[in-house]
């Protein structure tokens, strides 16, 4: 009888320990998942912010590029800085089609 009682107590104890472990694992998993979720939320927000900033930066750079390619500015720079000149009428090159070449 004593032996049977001891086995029963052990069994009960085992179930309790097992329940405890399972509960711990469940709670731990739940908490860690929740924490992970919150962490992902933070990360996502920071990445979203970064993406937004980068997109804004791209727009600014596009605008700067377009400003630099402004035709009035390019023409001014070419004439003033690089010394380009508009060709005189006499400087136009007349292109003749080679009749021998076109026959080939």
């Amino acid at each position: 009888m004593k032996r049977e009682n001891g086995t029963g107590t052990k069994k009960t104890g085992g179930i309790l320990v097992l329940t405890g472990i399972v509960s711990f694992i469940l709670i731990f998993t739940y908490l860690s998942l929740n924490l992970k979720n919150i962490d992902s939320g933070y990360e996502m927000q920071s990445l979203n912010k970064k993406q937004k900033t980068l997109l804004e930066e791209i727009d600014k750079l596009k605008s700067k590029k377009a400003n630099l390619l402004n035709l009035q500015r390019v023409e001014k720079e070419m004439v003033q800085q690089l010394g380009y000149q508009y060709p005189e009428v006499s400087q136009f090159i007349k292109v003749f089609e080679d009749s021998n070449e076109s026959n080939k």
């Binding site: 804004e56 727009d59 600014k60 596009k62 605008s63 377009a66 390619l69």
Partner: peptide
């Protein structure tokens, strides 16, 4: 909302909105 960009026929920017 960001106002749309206006491009010419070669994709050159004619009007753009920046922050």
């Amino acid at each position: 909302p960001k106002r749309g960009t206006i491009y010419d026929c070669n994709g050159e920017i004619l009007a753009i909105s920046v922050k």
